[in-house]
Amino acid sequence: MDWKVLLEQAPSGGMTYLGWLASGLFWTLAVSACAWVIAFAVGSVVGVARTVPLAAARLAATAYVELFRNIPLLVQMFLWYFVMPEVIPKDWGDWLKQDMPNLLTLPFAAQFSLWEFTAAVLCLGLYTASRVAEQVRSGIQSLPRGQTSAGLAIGLTLPQVYRHVTLPMAYRIIIPPMTSEFLTIFKNSSTALTIGVLELTAQSRQISEYTFKTFEAFTAATLIYIAITMTVIFAMRALEKRVAVPGYIAQGGGH
């Protein structure tokens, strides 16, 4: 084992191989965090839409979930990156492929453009949204139906019932499965390397190619991924504790 290799000057970027890893970590976190914002927002809307008494909304939401969760993530990555620019008007497609600013000028420089980053974020975000939507739906449906009735009976409108009664409990209930989704988004962000985003996995592969230190390169990546996921797990546990409802015992559809 030769861990000192990580401190050697890398051939590009004006940094050491450790710097490459740090750069990869930065883009892994950036892709995952942006995708999670999309996944959480879109997933919440779609999940709620699957439970509302409006057939058209339920149908659209169900179609969304089935479309996005039934196509392999990698295929979706290619669809966004390679296919999407071809099916939109040519000018726009060319703009996406050629004129998006290069990310070289940003800190933690790496050789890919904002288009690769955007495609990865959209793909990962909208895919994970379909999974988040299912969690949100199951959370809402696990609540006793009387809760909605009670909210309506006291004069709240249906959106107010969701906002003040159903969703606050549903989100609490789904913290454990949502933790899994959140972890998965960090791990799935490695698929972004296939369209050229130089995130953590891509950088460690690059390091192993340049230095032939395969074990060190991927062990380092593994440890960094574990550090990320452990942080997420502890943060979510802390969140779960913070929002715990005093005296509330998980109930299976009744009291």
């Binding site: 009387g146 009664v165 409990m169 409802v245 509330y248 009291h255």
Partner: peptide
């Protein structure tokens, strides 16, 4: 008033 009270637990 409901059979199962339906106070908002949170």
């Amino acid at each position: 008033v409901f059979q199962n009270f339906e106070l908002f637990p949170h």
